[in-house]
Design a binder for these strands. Structure first.
Lengths: 159, 159
DNA sequence: GGTAACGTTTCATAAATATTCAAACAGACG
DNA sequence: CGTCTGTTTGAATATTTATGAAACGTTACC
């Protein structure tokens, strides 16, 4: 019984957004399975499902987009907020922040997962960003500097 | 305030398994943020975090891979355990680990005293390994990747 | 047959999370 | 300055989820 029910659960959550175990229970009943909320709670744990906070729906891990655009926006904000100076040495980008701010900025860079960026190493006020090659480094430098400039300049200005 | 708190939340959940909003609240308090469970609930929704049913921990989507800290061991053992990704750029090797695991892995690499390796710099989840030249870099890359592959072949299940 | 061992389910309840609503706060504008 | 307007927050509360304990069903064994 359990097997069938659990595979029905997987099927259901992949088809539509189901936001509570009660809702899941009702759907299951419609398919001929009768199970209480307690049972469903255990099924969900065994299936290693995940509950999205944004809308409360259950899903299998890795199924979701991950909010690419959001991470980008966050990076932009972080750069505006934290970045003080940029230096490029070949494919290595050295970023300076105010003391203690390197970690959050590096985190934002990591999360954005820019294709040119291989990785970052952050200390207290310095971040080393490794890009694939010097050209990629120049691109990222230009990108970051542009965003940092937005702060100082006025938003209306055409570039 | 919200901005800072939310980025602290992302940082916290990426570092360790936090299974309840109360726990998150306590961690935040330790970092100087005071927020009630209600506020944290909203933050989590805005950050689009996800709660794993298997252990109840929060994570950002796509990060599915259980991270935990274990005792130190030989380099091979450490690589199996910690290494997630390898990138080679000329003579520079960029290793990625799960959050917070870079230090132990870098330590293991240092201790192994590989002849091709000049030195390492480790951040939170990234290690920069400097080898003598590109050829040495390729060799080390191949070595590490081979060991990391062993992991994929015999994956450890969480729980 | 009896009964021990095990896995599964339910019930009752504890724990965790989301939401409602009102108050505090922050800018923009007169 | 005060008054809008919109955002953020906490307290109280409603909703949702997890769990301990008992009960059920099955299998295996004597």
């Amino acid at each position: 019984m359990k097997r069938y029910r659990q595979s029905a659960i997987l099927d259901l959550v992949s088809r539509e957004a189901i936001c509570s175990q009660d809702a899941l229970g009702r759907q299951l009943r419609a398919r001929g399975f009768h199970a209480t909320q307690a049972t469903i709670s255990r099924d969900i744990k065994e299936l290693q499902l995940v509950k999205r906070a944004s809308d409360g729906a259950y899903e299998r891990p890795g199924t979701s987009e991950g909010g690419r655009g959001l991470a980008d926006a966050a990076l932009r904000r972080a750069i505006l907020e934290y970045l003080r100076r940029v230096d490029l040495v070949q494919q290595l980008l050295v970023l300076r922040t105010d003391p203690g701010q390197a970690q959050p900025l590096a985190l934002a860079i990591d999360r954005a997962e820019l294709p040119e960026v291989v990785g970052t190493v952050a200390g207290d006020d310095t971040i080393l960003v490794i890009t694939r090659h010097a050209r990629a480094g120049r691109e990222v430098t230009r990108l970051f500097e542009g965003w940092a400039m937005d702060d100082r300049a006025h938003p209306r200005q055409a570039f």
